[in-house]
Amino acid sequence: MNTLLLLLQDFGLAAVPAVGFAMIFNVPKPALRYCALAGAIGHALRFTLYKIAPLPIELATLIAAGVVSLIGVYWAQKWRAHPKVFTVAAMIPMVPGVYAFTALLALVEIERKGYSEALLRTAMDNGLKAFFIIAALAVGLALPGLLFYRRKPVV
C-alpha cells in the first residue's frame, strides 16, 4: 500500500481510541472533537517520524507529544481549560500498552516455568521500551511548560 494511504489510515484509526478514552475520562462533550483531532495528529506525526524519517520510536514519541501539547496550549487558552483535558486522551493511542503487558506477562511466565534467558530478555526489552515511551509522552506533554511557560500558568 502506498505511504500516503497508510498515513491517512493511521490518522483516521488513531482518532477512535482518542475519543473512546476521552469518554472514559469524562472529557466535556464539546472538547471531544479536539481530542480526536489531537490524537490523530499525534499518532500520524509519530508514524511519519518513526516509519518514514526514520527516528527511534522514543524520540518520535517525544516530538509528537510536544507538538500535540503546543496545540493543546492554544486550545486551552481559547477554551479556558487545562491543556491536559485535551492532550492526555490524545496521547492514549501512543501509550505502549502491548509492550507493558508483554513485559509483565513474561515476568509471570518466569515465575511459572522458572528462569530462562529468553523470557528475561522479553521482559527487559518490552518493559524498558514501555517505560521510555511513557516517559517521552509525559515529558513531551510538559514541554511547553518547561520551555515557554516556566514561571507562569498556561491558562
Binding site: 477512535v16 475519543v19 473512546g20 493511542p93 500498552g97
Partner: peptide
Amino acid sequence: VSVMVGLSCAAFARLGLI
C-alpha cells in the same frame, strides 16, 4: 462508553495489524 471503547480496541487491533 462501552461501544466507543470497543471500537477503540478494534482500531488498536487494526493499528497492530498494520
